[in-house]
């Protein structure tokens, strides 16, 4: 039926080109537009509206409360702590996982032997189910029977309570995230590397860039720019929205030490049932993330596109 419609559109387009073309364009983009409106735009607007109410799950009526939820947010210690935790978390995870991804990609590219194996090995965390991986991490980082602490004990080092102490819980979640994201970044960066024309390296060598470091600095790095922009954006987003490791491993504890913002929103809405307040948190979260993205794009784009 859709085919027939397109044929008809195509047929009329032959007669009256401009209108027909526009109709065809609309028709072809319609599924994407409908999906976008239904799946993203409408829910986002709904969340913005709910943020202005005191809607609670299971309570039949709700009232318009204006900006009360946002005023409460500003005073809420339970919101300030996860915001601080998330900022620390992104500052830890994003740079380290990008750096690790870059180093892994360069190492694997440099040596063709075992390339497929290493690529698969480091990409594994991305394709595996994080909740299942979390169980493995829980065992690895177990304070008494975990292999990590067993090794540290043999080396005569201190054995931290990785997931159970407020000093380490957030860092441990961060380390797991770095492990998870590094492989993802590695694959993206490797794709970027293969897009760099080989002749440029040869040309750089002739022009005097004799050391590998010089070629990296003068050819690889600048040409990797657009890829790195994407990697920085995607890693930041992935770090900000970390949820599953927190939910599976620490439940934000002890005493909110490892609580990240998305987990807070989830608890507020679905455990404490305050949908209106949780929506207000989501709106603030969304605004901050979009602002951050806009800022990053503007700052980095200036230096990555050559034209």
């Amino acid at each position: 039926m859709a085919d027939a419609a397109i044929h008809r559109v195509a047929a009329t387009a032959a007669v009256r080109a401009p209108i027909g073309e526009a109709a065809a364009a609309w028709l072809l983009t319609a599924p994407a537009i409908v999906a976008f409106v239904l799946m993203l735009l409408v829910p986002t607007i709904a969340v913005c509206l709910l943020a202005l109410t005191d809607f609670e799950l299971g309570v039949p009526t709700f009232q318009f409360v204006g900006l009360d939820n946002f005023a409460e947010l500003m005073r809420d210690r339970n919101f300030a702590i996860p915001v601080r935790n998330t900022a620390f978390f992104v500052a830890l995870v994003a740079p380290l996982s990008i750096l690790m991804g870059l180093v892994l990609a360069l190492l694997i590219e440099a040596n063709p032997r075992g390339r497929t194996f290493f690529r698969a090995a480091f990409f594994l965390p991305v394709v595996s189910l994080m909740v299942a991986m979390a169980t493995a991490w829980q065992y690895l980082l177990h304070p008494t029977i975990g292999p990590v602490n067993a090794i540290l004990r043999d080396l005569g080092l201190a054995t931290p309570n990785w997931l159970g102490s407020s000093e380490w819980a957030l860092i441990s979640i961060g380390l797991i995230s770095i492990w998870e994201n590094a492989g993802f970044n590695m694959v993206l960066i490797m794709a970027g590397l293969t897009a760099i024309p080989r002749e440029l390296y040869a040309a750089a060598e002739i022009d005097g860039a004799r050391s590998a470091w010089a070629r990296l600095r003068l050819v690889t790095w600048p040409l990797l720019g657009p890829t790195m922009l994407f990697v920085v954006l995607i890693t930041t987003i992935r770090a900000i929205r970390t949820f599953d490791t927190v939910a599976a491993l620490t439940q934000g504890g002890p005493n909110k030490a490892s609580e990240l913002i998305v987990y807070t929103i989830y608890r507020e809405g679905f455990t404490y049932l305050r949908m209106g307040y949780a929506s207000a948190m989501t709106v603030v979260f969304l605004a901050v993330v979009l602002g951050l993205m806009a800022l990053q794009t503007r700052l980095i784009e200036r230096r990555t596109h050559y034209g």
Binding site: Q138, Y139, H142, P143, T144, I145, N161, L163, G164, S165, A169, A248, L249, T250, Q251, G253, P254
Partner: peptide
């Protein structure tokens, strides 16, 4: 008494520790 997170207590117990 250690501060076990999640089900770490059950794991330690099952391991005989």
């Amino acid at each position: 008494m250690p501060n076990y997170a999640g089900t770490a207590d059950l794991q330690a117990f099952a391991a005989g520790k």
